[in-house]
């Protein structure tokens, strides 16, 4: 009993330290920002424009690449194939490489001299220094969050349910959309939210592709460099609040939307 009590105390202390480590700096941002400063930031069109650009670019990347990434997650969960381990590793690569390096890598593919860059230009899409480049950079670094969550979700759907549906006459398409996807929905939605949230916070890859138009992480960095901490902090506080609010609302919505009863 004593040992359990001691163990509990040690665990509680360590857990508390970790939580404090996460919460204290964030709380510091909010507490050190005065109400008038909040007001100034909210009234600043540059900040508002950058927040809108950040939210929408990340959302566009999530939706665009999510459509292709969900089938990939399904394949990784269901099929055994040659080099599957390598592909699983490849999926995680954007998480482990420095994001500035990721930015350089993307730049190598979309810069004006490349065929993608040229094709984009012909279609009126600017990657370097454009919204399309920001979307690509955000999607690149955040895709692993969606693929991994969705793969785990599909993995948890018993294959027998799919076989039962096939046996009842359903086509493989129908099985995917009426059985596999709804049952993996919780994980897929969670992955989409994580991908979107991760895209919002991206700085390293985005700044290399597009300094302008300015996403909020780049704006915070620019304000910090040009004017110092007291000018960067209010922008950071407002951006964190907006992200938190949307994150909480989406979590609640996705939770209420799912009714898997067992």
């Amino acid at each position: 009993m004593l040992r359990n009590w001691k163990l509990s105390m040690v665990f509680l202390f360590l857990s508390g330290m970790v939580l404090l480590f996460i919460a204290a700096p964030l709380a510091g941002i909010f507490l050190k920002t005065s109400l008038p400063q909040y007001g100034q930031v909210i009234a600043d069109p540059t900040v508002l424009r950058s927040i809108r650009l950040t939210l929408l670019s990340s959302l566009a990347g999530t939706l665009l690449f999510g459509i292709a990434a969900i089938p990939l997650a399904y394949l990784l969960a269901r099929k055994d194939f040659f080099l599957k381990g390598l592909i699983n590793g490849l999926v995680d690569l954007p998480v482990v490489i420095p994001h500035s390096a990721a930015g350089i890598a993307i730049l190598g593919v979309v810069s004006r001299g490349t065929w993608l860059g040229k094709a984009g230009e012909a279609a009126g899409i600017t990657f370097v220094g454009g919204v399309a480049g920001i979307v690509l950079a955000m999607a690149f670094v955040s895709l692993p969050f969606l693929i991994n969550a969705a793969r785990d979700g599909f993995d948890a759907v018993p294959e027998k349910l799919e076989k039962a549906a096939l046996n009842l006459g359903a086509s493989p398409w129908r099985v995917f959309f009426s059985i596999s996807l709804p049952l993996a929905k919780r994980s897929v939605i969670s992955g989409l939210i994580m991908m979107w949230a991760r895209g919002l916070s991206e700085f390293g890859a985005v700044v290399i592709i597009a300094y302008h138009p300015m996403v909020t992480p780049v704006l915070i960095w620019e304000r910090f460099n040009a004017f110092g901490l007291s000018y960067a902090r209010p922008v950071a506080a407002v951006f964190v609040l907006v992200c938190l609010a949307i994150f909480v609302v989406m979590r609640l919505l996705s939770k209420n939307n799912i009714h898997v009863r067992n």
Binding site: K160, L161, K163, A164, N167, L183, V260, R261
Partner: peptide, 19 residues
């Protein structure tokens, strides 16, 4: 094809669709 066979299978674990 699975869908064109005249058989219906009831698995031991029943595999009812939980959702």
């Amino acid at each position: 094809r699975i869908q064109q066979r005249p058989v219906g299978l009831v698995y031991q674990d029943l595999s009812l669709f939980p959702h």
